[in-house]
């Protein structure tokens, strides 16, 4: 069974007084367990909208099509239930939560899952061990875990913290929204290594990016080109290189 099955998805963004604005205009996409898909496209193509709609962010309305996750209708579920079912979004702009230690935040998230599954809360010591082990792998300093969520983090620290959260929450489907933005090449490598370590036969990933650069490090199985709310071309990893040399103009032209 496909892990994520998107069929002819149409969605609008609630654009205040201007009314709903169509962004996604019929997207179909299937991710099987173990696969890494990349979605590339120019600014305004609908890349972030796609990840927002999948993860259930308020402010978007699905006007057609379906999204099935592991055989269930994802669109029927609340955002927090989707997350607990194994969906993880690594944010393009991780949000600051003042006064809430990163460790506390993660523990709360883990316990929310356990509670939903009827399991007892994680033992404080077990949690600490787990967090330290994961932090070490990602080169996250212990002191960062005590700092409030994303507050005062550098761009690289924020993205590393996102990947740390991803590792801790053990999702089945990872959405990475422009995880490369704001990263220098060294930070990019660390983050990519972290993501690659999470590749697993039962886990799928959807990597959204503007640049091919990230895909040198996180090598996708399938590449999709998104333009004006539609997938205009899909192929293997070589498609990313083709895009890099030709630019998006050809594809946006085709979509128009």
């Amino acid at each position: 069974m496909a892990l994520l099955d998107i069929k002819d998805l149409h969605a609008t963004v609630d654009d205040g007084d201007a009314g709903p604005k169509p962004i996604l205009k019929g997207i179909s996409l299937t991710i099987n367990p173990g696969e890494v898909h990349a979605v590339m496209g120019p600014n305004g193509a609908g890349k972030s909208t796609l990840s927002n709609v999948i993860s259930g962010r308020p402010g978007y309305t699905v006007t057609g099509g379906s999204v099935t996750y592991d055989g269930v209708d994802l669109l029927e579920m609340e955002a927090d239930a989707r997350a607990r079912a194994g969906l993880f979004l690594a944010f393009q702009y991780p949000v600051e939560i003042p006064g809430v230690a990163t460790g506390t935040f993660l523990k709360t998230a883990i316990n929310a899952r356990r509670k939903a599954n009827g399991e007892p809360e994680i033992e404080a010591l077990d949690f600490l061990k787990l967090m330290k082990a994961n932090a070490k792998k990602l080169g996250v300093a212990d002191d960062m875990l005590k700092r409030p969520v994303n507050v005062g983090f550098s761009g690289g620290e924020k993205k590393r913290a996102e990947v740390l959260q991803m590792a801790m929450l053990e999702p089945r489907l990872c959405l990475l929204d422009e995880t490369d933005s704001g990263l220098d090449i060294d930070a990019l490598k660390v983050v990519a290594d972290g993501v690659n370590a999470l590749r697993a036969p039962d886990r799928g990933m959807l990597v959204i990016t503007h640049y091919q650069r990230l895909l040198d490090y996180i090598v996708p199985d399938v590449v999709h080109v998104l333009a004006d709310g539609r997938i205009v071309k899909s192929g293997d990893k070589s498609l990313a290189l083709e895009l890099e040399s030709k630019g998006y103009a050809e594809f946006t032209g085709a979509a128009a």
Binding site: E78, A79, D80, A83, L89, V95, T108, A109, A112, L169
Partner: peptide, 16 residues
Amino acid sequence: DDQLFYCLQRGIPEED
């Protein structure tokens, strides 16, 4: 809304 969604996306129910 961003803070709230960030928490929801990590599986934390709204009231929590």
